[in-house]
């Protein structure tokens, strides 16, 4: 039962008949294996070969697993540092500005071109479709998203054989 469930998990897109055929084929291969043992070179023998393969996989997983563990730890540290810097930036008092003798003209409040607002609203309506409310429109300052989008666009232009 467990084996059946395991095989269904491994190969979900196969009918029961195909599954039986595969099981029979696997059994035949297993039965045929001892007959082919004498075809193996003197070193390694069958048992040695199994151990050799297992050891090889262990070495590969050990190397990459170590890198994984260390990178997780490193990532954790870097994320903590980034979060701490962000929190400090929020808590930092605003810079003291010397009061000029005559108050300057009030700085112009940045406004968004109504045309851009209309384009954004139309794009949101087209993408989301369902009833929605736009609560804010902010210019992206992080260039990563744009470069990622550009890369995605670039890859999509390639014809995949």
């Amino acid at each position: 039962m467990f084996l059946m469930r395991l095989s269904r998990w491994i190969v979900p897109n196969v009918s029961k008949n195909h599954g039986r055929c595969a099981a029979v084929a696997g059994g035949v291969l297993l039965l045929a294996a001892p007959a082919r043992l004498n075809a193996l070179p003197a070193y390694p023998e069958f048992g040695e070969s199994l151990v050799f393969q297992f050891n090889g996989l262990v070495v590969v997983f050990l190397a990459l697993g170590l890198i994984w563990g260390l990178m997780e730890a490193l990532g954790f540290v870097f994320r903590r540092i980034a979060a701490r810097d962000a929190a400090r930036a929020l808590l930092a008092p605003p810079p003291v500005v010397a009061t000029p003798a005559t108050p300057p003209d009030p700085a112009p409040v940045p406004t968004i071109d109504p045309v851009i607002l209309a384009v954004v609203a139309a794009a949101v309506h087209r993408t989301v479709g369902a009833p929605h409310r736009i609560v804010g429109v902010t210019a992206l300052t992080d260039a990563v998203d744009w470069s990622r989008e550009g890369r995605r666009d670039h890859f999509q232009t390639h014809r995949i054989r």
């Binding site: 996989l57 190397a63 990459l64 697993g65 890198i67 994984w68």
Partner: peptide, 9 residues
């Protein structure tokens, strides 16, 4: 996404 390194292994 470091855990994807295990897929390479």
């Amino acid at each position: 996404l470091p855990r994807t390194i295990l897929l390479g292994a």
